[in-house]
Computed example of a mutant assay.
Amino acid sequence: MRRIKMEQKKYTDVIRFGHQTTEGVFNEGNFIIIQEKLDGANASFRYDEETKSIRAFSRNLELHEEENLHGFFQWTQQLPKEEVLAGMVYFGEWLNPHKIKYPQYEKQFFLFDLYDTVACEYVDFAIVEREAQRLGLHLVPVFYQGEYHGEEHLKSFVGKTALGGKLRDEEIGEGIVVKNADYRDRFGRQLFVKIVTDVFSEVKRLKPPKDPNQPKSGEVLFVEQYVTRARVEKFLYKLIDEGVMEETFGVKDMGVILKNLNLRIQEDLFKEEADSLPDGYDEKELRKAISKVIPLFVKELFLEKAPGNP
């Protein structure tokens, strides 16, 4: 049966805590929810009333038998479709192996949100909890629900994992996602916030220049701060999720990697870090600086994956 293309609802961008757009999201006394940020592939599904079927999506694409996000599409087709709520998009994390491994939960789905396509908003988390229980779905681990008690309280949960996440031999979590269900920005939009562990940070502190007499350009300083190994690695795993390359990537894939990463990371920076771009920057110089840094991080990752390295 030929499928009619369904408009895809992408999950909202989760903003780094401390970014200027997160100012005012949390105030003393607000009711917040702190969830574990899982290191997997963003995935979603919904019931299509017209075709009476379950439609499945990765972050950017509708999935099918061949383009299946490493088995996520097939998993959704086993769901009791008559019980999936119409008009709702079920968002979660498909634990395809990324940087952090979850040995007991590989290739399993963890629900973290529901989007109401009629009301055009993410529903109260109590509804998400009930849906997970009703459909027998894993629910993303919740570290805390209650009043907001400041930044230090939030950060006390960063690095914890309820699923036994491991980076090499160390038990660690990617970070946390924090939600204030009542907050709306000046455009009426909900906004969710993340805090990640240092190894996942996409921003780094700049060190004083070695030679003050040879100052670097604003474009180079911007790239040094925002084109981090974590940002490069994030997009590398997206290429694996999308089937652009295999998990066993290596030097042979360098051409494909650079072709894809240069463009994607540039787009990500212009979207996520636009407020930090230097005044009057030269876009050509900025793109040139980005393209010089990415291969260095990719080569680091190649070395780590080489035989004999843990």
Rank of each mutant, 00 (worst) to 15 (best):
W75Y: 14
G159I: 01
D279L: 10
L163D: 01
Q35N: 14
E283H: 10
H70L: 00
I257S: 02
M6N: 12
L85E: 13
G165W: 07
H70Y: 11
D39K: 07
V84D: 05
F302R: 05
T117C: 06
E62H: 11
E151I: 15
L206C: 09
N30R: 05
Y237G: 06
P97M: 11
I100Y: 09
P215E: 00
L303P: 00
G87T: 03
Q214A: 14
F222N: 07
N30C: 04
R186F: 12
E174K: 15
M88G: 02
Y115V: 06
N180D: 02
E283P: 12
G255T: 09
E233R: 14
K299A: 02
R287N: 11
P80T: 05
G280T: 05
N180R: 03
A86P: 15
K238R: 09
A43R: 09
G188Y: 12
T228D: 03
K210E: 13
F45V: 00
F200S: 01
G92H: 08
L221S: 07
L286G: 06
Q74W: 00
L154T: 02
W94R: 12
I290E: 05
W94D: 01
T228V: 04
S217F: 10
R168H: 15
H70D: 08
K204W: 10
F110E: 00
R2A: 02
D241S: 15
H70A: 03
I265H: 03
Q104Y: 14
E300Y: 11
L111M: 05
I54S: 12
S156L: 01
D113L: 02
R186G: 10
Y115I: 05
E300G: 11
E23N: 13
K9M: 05
V293D: 07
Y226K: 02
D113S: 13
T51S: 14
I265T: 05
R287I: 07
F57D: 00
E129P: 07
V256I: 14
L163S: 01
F31G: 10
P103H: 13
L114A: 04
R205A: 15
V123A: 05
D182N: 15
K194F: 13
E300N: 10
K216E: 14
Y47G: 02
P307L: 01
K207T: 07
L301W: 12
V223C: 08
F112H: 15
V193A: 12
Y115P: 11
K99L: 11
L296H: 08
L137I: 01
G173L: 04
G71H: 09
I240H: 08
D48M: 10
A306M: 06
Q266W: 10
K194V: 01
F249E: 06
Q145I: 10
V298H: 07
A43P: 15
G164S: 01
I257G: 03
N262W: 13
L95Y: 11
V232C: 12
N27W: 13
E242R: 12
H70N: 06
Q145P: 15
M88N: 01
K5R: 13
N213I: 06
R130W: 03
D275H: 08
R59D: 01
N180C: 00
F249V: 04
H149G: 09
N68S: 09
E131F: 09
P103G: 06
E50H: 14
Q35R: 14
N42I: 03
S201P: 01
K10E: 08
T161L: 02
